[in-house]
């Protein structure tokens, strides 16, 4: 038996570090996940490091070549007003990446705080927060964001990111809440509580680290969701506004001419798909890395020669699936829980 102090204070760091290292090793073994990481790094480098070296900036007009296809002078072609599409796309990529990379973790943070508070405090806090969560699910997010957008037209994109995050946290919040409800009764949490540790400290030091796998995976998945959300709002003119560009506004501008000047549409669209793909690869890699029953984890354990390899792989896969559900199938889970909570 250890004293509560040693259980909460000294035992935790080395264990979490070794677990982190294990996850890293497993993650690095996943080829698709590494491709995803490489893609994200490449996209960020492309978006931020390349533009200064280009001949054209995104707001220059080359009046000698209006609406020309891809070529040596303009790699991705030009728009009707002679803007270099490569520069424009990189600028849009910058915006989309920054919106996603800030918005995704922000969404997860909101979900973690609200979900953990509801689960930890229980009682009226839980009831009020869950009721609010239900309300947020019912409010048509797209409609509200669009209606609100004129009010924020002159603000920065940061407002926009916060708004997007404010409408995306609900389903994860529910998952975190139910995880917290089981964690709340664990000995180390009880010990911390009886020692008089502040509830918020308990949540951030003892509860959320134990939900870390879900949270990290969710943060990656949310990056994709936020990028798509930004794109669709910008597509309809409710998001990033005219002098600034995002991939969404570029795609919107290219849509009417997709038949005659396909480069205007398909180059920005391709970058959007690349962001989505890389995020999906990383998310899946993380999910497998955090799952102790996944294939990568098992290869370290004792090898059982009696089991043929293919069968082994299959059992590993099936064993991992139940873990997939909490994050992946949250949509129906949330739907089915809708009325149970209050």
């Amino acid at each position: 038996m250890t004293t509560p102090a040693s259980a909460t204070g000294t035992a935790a760091p080395p264990r979490s570090r070794s677990r982190g290292a294990l996850v890293l090793v497993r993650f690095a073994r996943n080829r698709l996940a590494l491709v995803g990481i490489a893609l994200v790094v490449a996209l960020v480098l492309l978006a931020y490091a390349v533009p200064p070296f280009l001949h054209w900036t995104y707001h220059d007009n080359d009046f000698a070549s209006l609406d020309t296809g891809p070529g040596a002078a303009h790699w991705f072609g030009t728009t009707h007003s002679g803007q270099d599409l490569f520069a424009l796309t990189l600028r849009g990529l910058q915006k989309s990446l920054v919106v996603g990379l800030v918005g995704g973790p922000l969404t997860t943070l909101i979900a973690a705080v609200v979900g953990a508070s509801a689960g930890y405090f229980g009682g009226w806090t839980d009831r009020v927060l869950m009721w609010f969560l239900d309300l947020m699910l019912v409010i048509p997010a797209f409609l509200l964001l669009a209606v609100l957008s004129p009010a924020f037209q002159h603000g920065t994109w940061l407002f926009f990111v916060i708004l997007l995050a404010a409408f995306g946290w609900m389903i994860t919040g529910r998952v975190v809440r139910s995880m917290t409800q089981t964690l709340r009764e664990r000995e180390y949490v009880l010990a911390a509580r009886y020692m008089g540790v502040h509830p918020l400290v308990v949540i951030f030091r003892h509860i959320l680290p134990n939900a870390a796998s879900i949270l990290i995976i969710d943060a990656t998945v949310q990056v994709g969701a936020i990028v798509l959300g930004e794109t669709s709002l910008s597509y309809f003119g409710f998001g990033i506004q005219a002098p600034d560009v995002s991939l969404g506004t570029l795609i919107a501008a290219g849509t009417p001419d997709a038949n005659t000047s396909p480069w205007l549409f398909f180059f920005p669209a391709a970058f959007l798909v690349l962001i989505g793909l890389s995020v999906a690869f990383i998310g899946d890699g993380l999910r497998d890395a955090f799952d102790p029953t996944a294939r990568g984890a098992k290869s370290r354990r004792r090898a059982r020669p009696a089991v043929p390899r293919s069968r082994h792989a299959r059992t590993a896969r099936t064993a991992r699936n139940p873990r997939r559900k909490p994050t992946a199938a949250v949509v129906p889970a949330a739907a089915t829980q809708e009325g149970v909570t209050p």
């Binding site: 994709g224 794109t231 669709s232 597509y235 798909v273 999906a280």
Partner: peptide, 10 residues
């Protein structure tokens, strides 16, 4: 994977 990463507009 590719189709899921592709927005409906595209």
């Amino acid at each position: 994977y590719v189709l899921l990463a592709t927005p409906v507009v595209v």
